[in-house]
Simulated assay, not measured.
Amino acid sequence: MSSLREVTATRYVTPFREGGSMPGLVEADDLGMYVVKFRGAGQGVKVLVAEIVVGELARRLGFRIPEIVLVHLDPELARAEPDQEVQELLRASGGLNLGLDYLPGSFDFNPVVRDPGAEFATRLLWFDALVLNVDRSWRNPNMLLWHREPWLIDHGAALYFHYSWSEGPRPTPKWKMTDYRYDSSDHAMLPNAGALSEVDAELAAKVTPELLDEVLALVPDEWLEGDPAELRRRYQDFFTYRLTNRGWVDSLEAARAARV
Rank of each mutant, 00 (worst) to 15 (best):
P111Q: 08
S21N: 15
I65Y: 04
A257Q: 09
V134S: 11
D128M: 08
V49R: 14
D183T: 08
R181M: 14
Y160V: 11
Q87M: 11
A50N: 12
V13W: 10
L218C: 03
A157W: 08
G247W: 02
L48Y: 14
P23C: 05
L77M: 02
D250H: 15
V219C: 06
L218F: 00
W151G: 05
T172G: 09
P228Y: 09
E225R: 14
Q43N: 15
D29Q: 10
G55A: 01
L159D: 01
P15R: 07
L196G: 02
G20E: 15
A158H: 03
Y12T: 04
W126Y: 02
I65K: 04
G55C: 05
G156R: 05
G156C: 10
W248N: 00
K37C: 01
V69A: 10
D213C: 09
F127C: 04
G194S: 08
G95P: 10
V215T: 00
A257V: 01
L25F: 10
G62L: 04
F63C: 08
Y241H: 12
R170Q: 09
V26S: 03
Y180Q: 12
L48K: 12
F238P: 00
R259Y: 02
A9Q: 13
A58D: 11
E202Y: 02
M1W: 12
R234Y: 12
I68A: 07
W151Y: 14
D213T: 10
R242V: 00
R59M: 07
A258T: 03
G156M: 10
G44F: 05
T244M: 10
G226E: 11
T122Y: 01
